[in-house]
């Protein structure tokens, strides 16, 4: 049984326009799955639809079935809010295209990380404090004590991203959805956060649904990719196959442009100092 089974998913806007049409894919337990597409291609909406968090006015149809060990098989589309609340946390997303807004500006970091720990693992008092520090250490944050006492605006963008990851992992999800986790970061911090995410997912054998516009990043991190254009899947397959032998013209375009960038870097390297 697959962990996540999306079949014939449609997301319709209030006006009746299809924003995502007939999308199907499955994510197995422990698998890493990449969703690639340019902005407006419906990849973030897909993530929201999977968690039953579509903004008001949008409707989903089709089927999204989540089947994690320890919980009942759940059909997300059309499920009542109470059922979904229980499901969320099992399948958790790190929502952070912009890391500052993903954290409550008026709440100290420690309390924000404590929230899911308290609810999901029932920790209280000193055990909770310890778990918070452990969670912050786990995402390789130096000085976890200082960070726990800080407000979001007092730490850097990369640190916020790590905190957001710590909060998502505190729920011990079976599936982690990472929606453009590195877009707002500068390149060196990006690489660090990606490596961190990579390591943590491997450690816990979680499944990962990685959403990005960046083919190179997704291909490096996932086993299986699906390319979205205008809300429809244009190509899917193993990351290797898609990169080496893209069939759809749009996929070819993506791969080519990634290659152009690579080649430019190589040329610079080969040419040495000008």
């Amino acid at each position: 049984m697959s962990l996540l089974e999306v079949a014939g998913l449609h997301v319709r806007a209030a006006g009746g326009r299809d924003l995502v049409s007939d999308l199907s894919f499955t994510v197995e337990a422990g698998e890493r799955f990449g969703l690639i597409g340019e902005s407006g291609s419906g990849k973030s909406l897909t993530a929201l639809a999977i968690m039953g968090l579509l903004p008001p006015g949008m409707t989903a149809s089709g089927s999204v079935v989540f089947d994690a060990p320890g919980t009942d098989r759940t059909e997300v589309v059309g499920a009542p809010e109470r059922r979904l609340t229980r499901l969320r946390g099992q399948v958790t997303s790190v929502v952070f295209q912009e890391p500052l807004t993903a954290l409550d500006p008026l709440m100290r970091i420690g309390r924000q990380v404590a929230e899911p720990l308290r609810r999901r693992q029932g920790l209280r008092g000193r055990a909770l404090d310890k778990a918070v520090l452990a969670a912050l250490e786990e995402v390789r944050l130096a000085e976890p004590r200082r960070i726990a006492r800080a407000y979001p605006h007092e730490i850097s963008g990369g640190q916020r991203q790590r905190v957001a990851i710590a909060m998502a992992l505190a729920c011990r999800p079976a599936l982690l959805i990472a929606d453009e986790p590195t877009t707002a970061l500068d390149v060196t911090v990006q690489a660090e956060v990606l490596a961190l995410l990579d390591g943590l997912v491997a450690e816990r054998s979680m499944a990962l649904l990685f959403i990005s516009h960046d083919l190179a990043v997704v291909a490096g991190l996932t086993d299986h990719v699906l390319i979205l254009k205008d809300g429809a899947a244009v190509e899917s397959g193993s990351a290797l196959d898609v990169v080496n032998d893209p069939r759809h013209p749009y996929a070819r375009e993506l791969v080519d442009s990634a290659r152009v960038l690579d080649a430019a870097l190589d040329r610079l390297k080969g040419g040495g100092t000008p």
Binding site: L48, M51, L53, E81, T85, R86, L87, R88, G89, Q90, T92, S93, V94, V95, F96, Q97, E98, T101, A102, L103, D104, P105, L106, M107, E115, P116, R119, R120, A164, M167, A168, A170, C171, I177
Partner: peptide
Amino acid sequence: QDYITASRTSGTSWPRVIAEHVLPNIWP
């Protein structure tokens, strides 16, 4: 704001979201 979505993705119920995030943020 994203932190409301973030809180809901981790399975926080609406009453808790209001008490923990909405009220403190509109309070000042």
